[in-house]
C-alpha cells in the first residue's frame, strides 16, 4: 500500500526538478547574455566617448589612453590622459602623473594593432560564461588602435620604455609632433601583421 502511493511521487519529482533546472539554466543564460550585451555597449560608448571627448578637450590632450607599461608610479594597464607639452609627454590619471621629456627620448615608434571590444577580466569571464560558444561571437568584435612606444633615459642614464594604446591615428600624430620637437628616432624594420588582421 505504502509502495503504491509512493511510486507516482518518486517519478514526478525528477520531472519537476528537471523543469526547475531547465528554467534556472534559461534564466542564467539570459542573464549572462544581458551582461554581455551591456559590456559590449559600454565598450562601444567608451570608444565613441574618446572621439567626443577630444572635441571638448584642448587639442594637445588625448583622453582614454591606456598606459600598458612605462612609469614606476603608475600601475600597468592604467587609463588616463596623454598630454603633449612643449617639453614632452605627460600621462595623468586621477591620482598619479608621469612625464617624459623630449630631450630624454631615444626612440619613438607608432604601430597599428587590433584590440577586442569586450576585454579585460570582466569581459573574459562574461565571454566564457555565454552558453553554446556565444563568447566566441563576442570575440569577433574588435577595433583598430594605435600603439605608441617611447624609449627614453632617466636622469641616471637608465633605459625606460613606455607603451600607450591610443585611438587609431593618434599615435602617428603624437610621434610626428615629438619628432618635430626634437625627439630622436631610429629606423625600424616593420613586422607584418598576422594574416587575419589585414583588411
Amino acid at each position: 500500500m505504502m509502495k503504491s502511493s509512493n511510486l507516482p511521487m518518486s517519478t514526478e519529482m525528477p520531472g519537476n526538478q528537471r523543469r526547475v533546472a531547465r528554467k534556472s539554466f534559461l534564466l542564467a543564460s539570459v542573464f549572462i547574455c544581458a551582461i554581455g550585451v551591456i559590456l559590449a555597449s559600454t565598450a562601444a560608448t567608451s570608444f565613441s566617448r574618446t572621439f567626443n571627448g577630444q572635441q571638448t578637450l584642448p587639442s594637445n590632450m588625448t583622453p582614454e589612453v591606456k598606459c600598458v607599461v612605462g612609469f614606476d608610479n603608475i600601475k600597468p594597464d592604467t587609463r588616463g590622459t596623454l598630454t603633449f607639452l612643449p617639453t614632452g609627454l605627460q600621462f595623468t590619471t586621477d591620482k598619479q602623473k608621469g612625464e617624459i621629456l623630449t630631450a630624454s627620448i631615444t626612440d619613438v615608434f607608432a604601430g597599428q594593432e587590433s584590440r577586442q571590444d569586450v576585454s579585460g577580466m570582466a569581459g573574459t569571464v562574461v565571454k566564457a560564461g555565454i552558453p553554446y560558444g556565444g563568447g566566441r561571437v563576442v570575440s569577433l568584435f574588435s577595433h583598430k588602435v594605435e600603439v605608441l612606444t617611447v624609449e627614453f633615459n632617466d636622469e641616471n642614464g637608465g633605459f625606460h620604455g613606455a607603451i600607450f594604446v591610443l585611438a587609431n591615428g593618434k599615435a602617428t600624430e603624437l610621434r610626428n609632433a615629438l619628432v618635430k620637437q626634437g625627439a630622436k628616432t631610429v629606423e625600424h624594420v616593420t613586422v607584418a601583421a598576422p594574416a587575419e588582421e589585414k583588411k
Binding site: 600598458v68 607599461v69 612605462g70 626612440d107 615608434f109 604601430g111 600603439v147 612606444t149 624609449e151 633605459f159 625606460h160 620604455g161 613606455a162 607603451i163 625600424h188 613586422v191
Partner: peptide, 10 residues
Amino acid sequence: PEDFRISTYE
C-alpha cells in the same frame, strides 16, 4: 615588434 621588446624589458 618594438612594443613586445619594451614590454618584455619592463
